[in-house]
C-alpha cells in the first residue's frame, strides 16, 4: 500500500494538539514548457530539497530556512553534507548522497551520452519550509534566477 503521508501527518499532529497544516492543493492545471531538444542534447539542472551543502558552505537552519546553496557539479561525494529539519530521513544520504542527491548518477548519465550536459552548479535547499508564501516569494524566484544563470534547458527536481 502506498503511504498516505498527508493523512498520517495530519492525524499525528492533531493528536499532539497542533493546528492542522493546510497542505498546498493545486486547483489549476500546471504550466507546461515543452523540451526544445532531446535530453541527450540538453543541459540539465538539478535541485534537491534534502538540505545538501558542500564543505565550506553554510549549513541550513531549521526555522523555515528558505535559502539555497549552489554546489559545483564536480563536487566529490565525500565533500557533500546534509542538514534538514527531518534529520531522520538523512541516515542513508549521509552515507551515500546519491540516494537523494543524484550528482554521481547524473555525471554517469552524461558520460554515457543519455544527458547532454550537467549545469556547472547544481542547487539544494532545505525543503522543510512551512510557509508556502516564503517558498513562492523567496525560494522559487531565487531558484529561477539561479537556473537561468546556469543556462539550463531543463531541470530535474528531487524531493525528499
Amino acid at each position: 500500500m502506498t503511504v498516505e503521508y498527508m493523512a498520517a501527518i495530519r492525524a499525528r499532529y492533531e493528536k499532539l494538539g497542533y493546528t492542522p497544516y493546510r497542505w498546498y492543493v493545486a486547483e489549476d492545471a500546471p504550466p507546461f514548457a515543452p523540451l526544445r531538444q532531446p535530453l541527450a542534447a540538453s543541459r540539465l539542472g538539478l535541485l534537491s530539497t534534502s538540505g545538501a551543502y558542500a564543505v565550506g558552505q553554510c549549513a541550513y537552519h531549521y526555522k523555515d530556512d528558505a535559502g539555497f546553496r549552489a554546489i559545483p557539479s564536480d563536487t566529490a561525494p565525500e565533500d557533500l553534507r546534509f542538514s534538514h529539519i527531518t534529520e531522520n530521513y538523512l541516515v542513508d544520504p549521509k552515507q551515500d548522497p546519491d540516494c537523494i542527491f543524484p550528482l554521481g548518477t547524473l555525471r554517469a548519465l552524461v558520460a554515457d551520452g543519455a544527458v547532454g550536459a550537467l549545469a556547472d552548479e547544481v542547487f539544494s535547499c532545505m525543503g522543510g519550509v512551512y510557509s508556502q508564501r516564503r517558498v513562492r516569494e523567496e525560494t522559487a524566484p531565487a531558484l529561477l534566477e539561479a537556473f537561468q544563470g546556469q543556462g539550463v534547458d531543463c531541470a530535474l527536481l528531487v524531493a525528499m
Binding site: 503511504v3 525543503g127 531543463c154 524531493a159
Partner: peptide, 29 residues
Amino acid sequence: MCHQTVCLVARHLEAHGIPTLVLGSARDI
C-alpha cells in the same frame, strides 16, 4: 513538506519557460 516545496518551485520554473521533472517518493503530496 519537501514535496510541496518542489511542486511550487516546479510550477514557477515551468511558468517561466524551464521544463521540469519532479522525482519524489510521497505520491499523495
